Simulated assay, not measured.
Amino acid sequence: MSVFLPRGRHLLADFHGVAAGRLGDAVAIEALLRAAADAAGATPVAGHFHPFGPGLGVTGVLLLKESHISIHTWPEHGFAAVDVFMCGAARPDKAVEAISAALAAGSVALREIARG
């Protein structure tokens, strides 16, 4: 009988009750995801962040050697959806903790999926 060892951990985090001012700045969101990658021990290789305009959200992805972190924000709803998928020795839970601290959400719903 073989033992299942996942190739990676995929964390899905929904942040509710976030101040709108924390969710609309693409430059700040990119810096946040890069800091989260660093906290997780992951290595960024490329990123792309798209702002939708004043008062609107940001969609972004930070590609990592270990996989990716993505974010979609809705300032008008105080909501951010974050995807953290990492393999190897990287710690996706540490990335989520860093993002959570920076966004100061009223509540966080977190799900984990073992991949592979």
Rank of each mutant, 00 (worst) to 15 (best):
A35R: 15
C87L: 00
A89R: 04
A95C: 03
S70H: 04
K65H: 12
R111G: 14
A95E: 02
H77V: 07
A46S: 15
P92Y: 04
H10Q: 06
E112M: 10
R9V: 07
A102F: 13
R111H: 15
I29F: 03
R115V: 05
A80Y: 08
K65A: 15
A42H: 02
A98N: 01
G21S: 12
R111A: 15
A28Y: 08
F52Y: 15
H72K: 02
I113T: 12
V84S: 09
D83A: 07
V18L: 10
A20D: 09
G57W: 03
K94N: 13
A37N: 05
P75F: 14
S67Q: 12
A101D: 14
A37E: 06
I113F: 12
G116N: 02
H77R: 15
G24F: 04
A102C: 11
V84E: 07
A37G: 09
L5Q: 11
S107N: 08
V3S: 10
F15A: 08
H48C: 06
L5H: 07
P75C: 13
A42P: 01
V58M: 07
A90H: 02
L56K: 15
R34H: 15
I71W: 03
R22T: 02
V82P: 06
L5Y: 02
W74A: 13
A98Q: 10
L62V: 12
A42D: 03
E30D: 15
V96I: 08
I113K: 08
T43I: 09
K94I: 01
L23S: 08
A80K: 05
L12M: 09
K65C: 07
P92H: 06
T59R: 08
I69M: 05
P6D: 04
S100R: 14
G55W: 10
G116K: 02
G116V: 03
A37D: 05
I113C: 01
V96G: 00
R111E: 15
R9W: 00
G78Q: 08
M1R: 06
A90V: 03
G78N: 08
A102S: 15
L63H: 06
A89F: 00
A31T: 12
A46W: 10
R111L: 13
H10E: 05
V27S: 12
A114D: 11
F49L: 07
G21H: 12
L110Q: 07
A36Y: 13
F49N: 05
I29S: 11
G17D: 10
F79V: 09
G47P: 00
P54E: 15
L33K: 03
A98T: 11
L64H: 06
A35G: 14
H10A: 04
R34L: 15
L33S: 04
V27G: 08
E30V: 10
A114G: 01
F49W: 13
G41H: 04
S107C: 01
